[in-house]
């Protein structure tokens, strides 16, 4: 009886392992900040900020939409290196479709 309980415990543990780990691929739980990136894959990026100049955190479906759709820029944006991005629509489906919207942090030199 004791052994049977052990076996049951092992099976339940294995089920738990899976249920606890299967969420890693689930974008529902992901949240990230986003930026507009240059099509030549250089490191120049323009952060997507709210009206107060703070980063916007996109979560779940909003995050998926942010990366999949274009972004309208109303004010001129400046990259860290001082490159400008004029107001307009950037990203997939826009006139500037060569630009991409990327979310999630890149590793930075520390």
């Amino acid at each position: 009886m004791k052994k049977t309980n052990l076996l049951t415990l092992a099976v339940l543990s294995s089920v738990l392992v899976f249920t606890s780990c299967s969420k890693d691929d689930d974008t529902d739980e992901l949240c990230a900040e986003c930026h507009i990136a240059l099509p030549d894959k250089s490191e120049t990026v323009w952060e997507i900020l709210d009206a107060s100049g703070e980063h916007i955190e996109f979560c779940g479906e909003d995050l998926v939409d942010a990366e999949a759709n274009s972004r309208v820029v109303t004010d001129t944006l400046y990259s860290d290196a001082g490159d400008t991005l004029l107001p307009g629509e950037y990203g997939p489906g826009s006139a500037n479709s060569q630009y991409e919207i990327h979310c999630g942090e890149e590793h930075e030199d520390e």
Partner: peptide, 10 residues
């Protein structure tokens, strides 16, 4: 096999 590069969700 999914390989995520520039985009986080795609």
């Amino acid at each position: 096999l999914k390989e995520y590069g520039e985009k986080l969700t795609k």
